[in-house]
Amino acid sequence: MEHAHLLIIGSGPAGYTAAIYAARAGLTPIMYQGLQPGGQLTITNDVENFPGYPDGVMGPEMMEDLKKQAVRFGTDVRYGMATAVDFSGHPHRVTIDEQTELTADAVIIATGASAKWLGLDSEKRLNGAGVSACAVCDGFFYRGQEVAIVGAGDTAAEEATYLANLCSKVYMIVRKGEMRASRIMQQRVLDNPKIEVVWNSVTDEILGEHTVEGVRLKNLVTHETREIPVTGFFVAIGHHPNSDIFKEYLHHDEQGYLKTLPGTTKTNVDGVFACGDVQDYTYRQAVTAAGTGCMAALDAERYLAALELPAHAEETVTAAQAA
């Protein structure tokens, strides 16, 4: 059975950054990239809010840059997805693709979160061509234009308000006759003259061949349909953290986000660290994910160094006695 000093599960900004720092610290990390190597940014066309790219960068290109940097310093980057873990003892055990088992002294989890989608074929086809699950990431591209956003919770209300600062008009599509958002967030939406709430409605189709040109809505009360011309379509119905295989051992909140000790990336299991969107339900940005990836590598480095202290201490005592 193969043994890793440090195993990183998942990639993206968090995983790759953790790998860069860990490799430079001499931890010889092994990384399994997961089902979507590079994470959500691999389906993002233009990234303009990550420091260091003054002219912007394509999401896949940025992830390839981070991967190359991790490999340059000695990270063993592999294809494969963690399908089971056993954190009940030490070393930790991780199964890859249901067949390959490894042990590890320390594990960094960077499996991210997946956006929830409506499930429309047109939504998938136009993803990155007007369809987005992150208004903060992509709203800038629709300045002065009319857009639509789907959702009824705090995130949807917050993103609708954010878009209203950039766009000429925002249609907020709400399935029921009321929102789930907090009262103060609802009031901000309702008081904003740029936001029109479309109640009791669902998205029937996103219109456009190569880019978003509009959206067809269906009213669930009258069963009538209407078409709205928009150039951007944002989905804000939530995210699902990719944490299912860890839940037996690691503390998590009601939504499945892994809990870490405040100010650190430490989980409730010694030697297991979590970074990026799998533990961040608040910000979910590439730059914050990268920051926690750095934290995870530093936390793991200190943990692994502390593990070796007893052995060094014993050698010192023995040498002293021998003298």
Results as ranks from 00 to 15, higher is better:
125 R>L: 13
220 L>P: 01
53 Y>T: 10
12 G>W: 07
285 Q>P: 06
299 D>P: 04
181 A>F: 00
172 M>R: 00
231 T>R: 15
6 L>D: 09
51 P>S: 12
58 M>V: 09
113 A>M: 04
175 R>L: 09
112 G>V: 06
215 V>D: 06
206 I>L: 01
113 A>T: 05
244 D>R: 14
282 T>D: 02
107 V>G: 08
132 S>M: 09
55 D>H: 13
30 I>G: 01
72 R>N: 13
48 E>A: 02
234 F>Y: 10
295 M>D: 02
146 E>W: 00
157 A>Q: 00
267 T>R: 01
82 A>H: 07
28 T>R: 14
199 W>Q: 00
248 E>H: 09
77 V>A: 13
29 P>L: 04
18 A>H: 08
117 W>Y: 11
270 D>C: 01
55 D>V: 03
39 G>Q: 04
159 E>M: 01
2 E>R: 15
34 G>S: 03
210 H>E: 15
128 G>I: 14
242 N>H: 03
95 T>N: 02
11 S>C: 08
52 G>Y: 11
263 G>I: 10
147 V>S: 05
290 A>Q: 04
121 D>L: 15
237 I>F: 02
177 G>K: 08
268 N>T: 09
64 E>R: 14
220 L>F: 03
6 L>P: 06
41 L>E: 02
128 G>P: 11
165 N>A: 12
174 V>P: 04
156 A>Y: 07
10 G>T: 06
307 L>F: 01
183 R>N: 03
262 P>G: 02
288 T>I: 15
30 I>E: 05
274 A>R: 02
282 T>V: 15
111 T>V: 08
21 Y>I: 05
47 V>P: 02
154 D>G: 03
65 D>R: 15
113 A>C: 04
274 A>Y: 01
37 P>I: 13
229 P>H: 10
145 Q>N: 13
262 P>H: 04
296 A>W: 10
283 Y>P: 00
32 Y>F: 15
11 S>Q: 05
165 N>E: 14
244 D>S: 15
47 V>S: 04
36 Q>N: 14
68 K>C: 11
52 G>F: 11
57 V>T: 10
71 V>R: 10
110 A>F: 08
115 A>H: 13
280 D>E: 08
106 A>R: 05
119 G>F: 14
46 D>R: 13
166 L>W: 00
263 G>C: 04
53 Y>R: 03
184 I>D: 00
30 I>S: 09
267 T>M: 05
279 Q>P: 05
139 G>C: 12
280 D>I: 04
309 L>C: 02
317 V>F: 13
290 A>V: 12
205 E>V: 10
312 H>P: 00
110 A>Y: 10
79 Y>T: 13
62 M>K: 02
8 I>A: 11
38 G>Q: 05
31 M>G: 11
89 G>Q: 14
40 Q>K: 11
75 T>H: 03
213 E>I: 06
161 T>Q: 05
210 H>A: 15
197 V>I: 06
240 H>K: 14
292 T>C: 06
254 E>V: 08
204 D>Y: 03
55 D>G: 13
57 V>L: 05
272 V>L: 05
75 T>E: 06
266 K>C: 14
61 E>L: 12
41 L>C: 08
104 A>T: 11
308 E>M: 05
233 F>K: 00
75 T>P: 07
90 H>Y: 12
284 R>L: 09
217 L>Q: 02
246 F>M: 08
190 L>T: 01
311 A>T: 15
70 A>W: 07
133 A>I: 12
98 E>R: 14
167 C>S: 10
86 D>R: 08
241 P>F: 07
